[in-house]
Design a protein around this nucleic acid. Sequence first.
RNA 1: GCGGGUGUAGCUCAGUGGUAGAGCGUCACGUUGCCAACGUGAAUGUCGUGGGUUCGAAUCUCAUCACCCGCUCCA
Length: 495
Amino acid sequence: MTMAKLAKLDDIVSLCKRRGFIYQSSEIYGGLASCYDYGPLGAELKRNVRHAWWKAVVQMRDDVVGLDCSILMHPMAWKASGHADKFADLVTVCKKCNTRTRVDHLQEKNDGGPAQEHTEHIDIETEAGKPHDLGRKVCPACGAVGQFGPPMAFKLMFETQMGANVNDQMTLYLRPETAQGIFANFRNVLDSTRVKVPFGIGQIGKSFRNEVTTKAFIFRTREFEQAELEFFCKPGTDEDWYNHWKEQRFNWYLNLGIKKENLRFREHEKDELAHYAKACVDVEYKFPFGQGDWQELEGIANRTDYDLRQHQRGMRTMNDWFENKGDLMKISLRQEDLDYAKGPLSFFDEEAKERYIPYVIEPSAGIDRSTLAFLVDAYDEEEVNGETRNLLRFHPHLAPVKAAVFPLVKKDGMPEIATKLYNDLKGCFATFYDEKSAVGRRYRRQDEAGTPYCLTIDGQTKEDNTVTVRERDSMVQTRVNIDQVKTYLRDKLDL
RNA sequence: GCGGGUGUAGCUCAGUGGUAGAGCGUCACGUUGCCAACGUGAAUGUCGUGGGUUCGAAUCUCAUCACCCGCUCCA
């Protein structure tokens, strides 16, 4: 059972390389852990996934606008969001059972009380060098007391330096999520686009996290692409909007062909929620790897008014930042103004004549994870005349190539007609032309790339001006007038 | 980070100290008139990388890198 599933992921990985969907990064140098590149077909597929998200979440919505933020942001953005403090941990290893535990999660022997080592709001590197008394701490895994190695520092944010002059550089972070760029531009969008709450801001872009462990092909990588929507709504209406987006996002995957039995919701338990979140649900896909199988594709969270309020605090803390020469560890966010609801990141509701900080519903999807899920879900093998047919049953919107044009044979004027049709179609869809080898082989090659339609010019074409349209999933062939092919495909592909 | 496994042609893999191989795929030519046809020919290798042992290493050994599985960790 498990073996079959593993074999299936291996098949996908091998197909991905063989057909140019996904390669390992820097392969000629032995690879770089957790990094992957998208080849010619993969780049098209991923682009189509992005486009499908943007169309559903931004283009088709009257209440959502788009945004494209820089990856580098002012360091205070990460102080306000909490990442600068919370994305650094001290971790220690139990020498007895080799289990790793966060130092601030360890409990003293016998007292059962809360952890006494606090590792938040500290300079993680300085702290790791200091002596820590773990002599009375209990390993939560095996119960051994005081058997810990020296604490190791983990920093989950990538750091980089801005400024070519090495004596005048500032440490910046590569964003660990795209969301904060949206919150930081909330005021700009309000002031420049005439949007009114309820409304959303959507964005697609790269994020970076130094995950402790990477996982399963492109599922968990340190550089990854997110598609995030921050939907701002009036407090009190947030639960309705939360349910609205849950439904919208779940159906998005189903509408793009993910099989129902492979998709589910998983609501987070109360004690699993981040302290600012009122509710959170994961959309999970049943991947063919690992033991858990069900893995998160997207998280939909009710983040309340936490983020905008935090950034208001961040704005009030700028003097401290200057006075401490930009050392984030030396400063704490200032308290909120008592009148925070009327602060710079508040919204004035004309109808109700009141000012408030909107609540936020955040659907946050992983583009790479979704792309992998679409690949895995589309993969199929079937028996045809005793031979195995490998194919990818992509939804037409996701298929990297929409149509392939073939002359049945390379003579009798067929290539000329086929080339003309190809040149006509490629302006509208991603189209592929092939005149090499037997036509059956060409069909099968396109099956493996997931191309939904193949068009073959044959002897009859010159007689009655029709071509064979061969359908990927059923292999059924129909004849269509060559002048009608573009309209026919547009209709079938829903483009 | 710990434990287990793997790494040889684009892919799947054989090769256990003595000339680097097969199938599939790719390319060319011929044939071929609708589902991975056939014939002939061709190209393709830092044997993951680096050191060591040896007359000689894909093979033994050490280190390292990458991937998979299980722990662990994880807004």
